[in-house]
């Protein structure tokens, strides 16, 4: 059953239900195939290190997809997501948990719909924000 988020429950300061993901090597290879991003830093340890990295790193776009998943789950439907901006500020290592979080910073309406503006981010297990961004979610009429 798909249940849409009601604007009656969304205010400035409302917390978005977090989402925790722990990408595996297998998942990175799956994502490489599904997105067409076969850059070797995401599955070839030696290549990643030769590129100056600690090791194999999680695709930034996969972290963006995790944030979109969090927002879609919270809103009740993926088409509610109207804008998503993400900046990859830190690298996430395979096998470590990534926690997606967000908070509503503003609500507004136009002629037909209500919207929530949100700050969103991912945190690594040390609590460092490795992705920062913002989103606009349509809360319906």
């Amino acid at each position: 059953m798909i249940k849409l988020l009601s604007r009656d429950h969304v205010f400035e300061g409302t917390t978005i239900t977090p989402l925790v993901k722990t990408p595996t090597n297998r998942q990175l290879v799956q994502y490489a195939g599904a997105s067409g991003d076969y850059y070797e830093i995401h599955y070839d340890q030696a290549f990643a290190q030769s590129a100056g990295l600690e090791g194999v790193i999680v695709h930034g776009a996969l972290k963006g997809a995790f944030l979109a998943e969090m927002l879609s789950n919270w809103a009740g439907h993926p088409t509610a997501l109207r804008k998503l901006g993400v900046q990859y500020r830190g690298m996430d290592i395979v096998g470590k948990p990534i926690t997606c979080k967000g908070i509503v910073t503003n609500t507004f309406s136009d002629n037909s719909s209500y919207f929530a503006e949100c700050d969103v981010w991912t945190e690594n297990e040390r609590g460092q924000r490795t992705t920062v961004g913002n989103a606009v979610v349509n809360l319906g009429t």
């Binding site: 998942q27 994502y31 067409g36 963006g64 997809a65 998943e69 879609s72 993926p78 998503l84």
Partner: peptide
């Protein structure tokens, strides 16, 4: 499947997740 997104709406409504367009 690669993202690990369990939302059934993609199958029910034959739509793609927002960032699928990276493909």
């Amino acid at each position: 499947e690669a993202v690990g997104d369990k939302n059934i709406v993609y199958e029910l409504e034959h739509i793609a997740p927002p960032t699928f367009l990276r493909y």
